[in-house]
Design a protein around this nucleic acid. Structure first.
Length: 304
DNA sequence: GCATGTCAAGTTGTG
DNA sequence: CACAACTTGACATGC
């Protein structure tokens, strides 16, 4: 089946996610910190329920969950665990509601930790923090039934192969809950599909193929080749392929194409993606409006 | 009320 | 060599 996914937020729908900062929390005694965090986490899981219902209503097939669904959970000072939160049980039931709803309606869920998660870093403290963050996201992923935690390969440090080697060693030591979900994505500055595919194929790590990054940061592979080879890994693990699409804000050839546009130019969707079993996250600033417009623009050409 | 600056974390490329 | 871009809003602060 082909489906489009929405990333994290809505433009026009009344779904909101709250957060807080360590600086703000630090002005409160611990018990009040936990009260505040509990309220925010509950708000966020309830709005995740709402987000899934909305996605369902709009005919969107996947949803990327914001990393700070439980803000600051792994911070060394302000961090906390679910059972410390006054509303912990209610929050747990809300996550379970999300899991059941998403499963019933076949809404694929994913996480995308941000740039601070770097498994290839030569700095042990960076790697340790990254692992902690991945474990946190895997706990949430397990609770809501998300099958993907997608990250970038990280820095190069002057030697891509050495960096990937370090990545591999850390990967081997990750808990199953993380490793079973972890995917790698080609990025727009350093790692191309050609850099990552041999590594991913050898270790059977699914590659989330971002065609916009590939166009910004090209290699010797065509879009068709990268799509096929990434798809083969997904097939090996028995899961549907995952890709990303976006369009450049200023078009191709007018300055840097990296910033994302409000909407997707249907011409940017590779022809070889049509009639293919895959989930495609739409990275566009107009959020659900962009997904809806793209589905309309492409009409019935995707599945038939 | 509304505008503005800040917010845990890493790395790279630009100014 | 300092700093913005990644992606983006929410929140606190100050007028």
């Amino acid at each position: 089946m082909f489906s489009f996914g929405l990333c994290c937020l809505f433009k026009n729908e009344a779904v909101s996610f709250r957060t807080t900062t360590v600086k703000n929390l630090s002005t409160l005694p611990r018990d009040l910190q936990l009260v505040k965090l509990s309220q925010i986490c509950l708000h966020n899981t309830q709005n995740l329920e709402l987000a899934l219902k909305t996605v369902r209503r709009l005919g969107i097939g996947a949803f990327r969950i914001m990393s700070p669904l439980f803000p600051r959970m792994t911070h060394p000072q302000a961090g906390y665990s679910m059972n410390e939160l006054p509303d912990g049980e209610v929050i747990g039931r809300s996550l379970e509601t999300c899991r059941i709803f998403a499963a019933e309606h076949h809404i694929r869920l994913s996480f995308h930790p941000d740039q601070f998660v770097v498994l290839s870093s030569p700095h042990p403290a960076v790697v340790a923090n990254s692992i902690q963050e991945l474990v946190y996201q895997a706990t949430l992923a397990e609770a809501v039934g998300a099958d993907v935690i997608n990250i970038h390969a990280g820095g190069v440090y002057g030697d891509k192969q050495a960096a990937l080697q370090r990545f591999g060693e850390v990967y081997d030591g990750l808990p199953d809950a993380v490793r079973n979900r972890l995917t790698l994505e080609n990025d727009d500055v350093s790692y191309t599909p050609e850099d990552l595919l041999p590594f991913c194929e050898q270790r059977t790590i699914p590659l989330v193929y971002d065609v916009h990054h590939h166009r910004c940061n090209p290699d010797n592979l065509t879009i068709e080749e990268a799509t096929e080879r990434a798809g083969a890994i997904w097939k090996t693990v028995g899961r549907e392929q995952y890709c990303h699409i976006s369009s450049p804000r200023t078009g191709w050839g007018n300055g840097t194409p990296k910033p994302h546009a409000d909407y997707i130019d249907p011409g940017d969707v590779p022809g070889c993606w049509r009639r293919r079993d895959m989930t495609v996250d739409v990275e566009a600033k107009a959020k659900e409006l962009a997904v809806i417009r793209l589905m309309n623009d492409l009409g019935g050409n995707l599945n038939e």
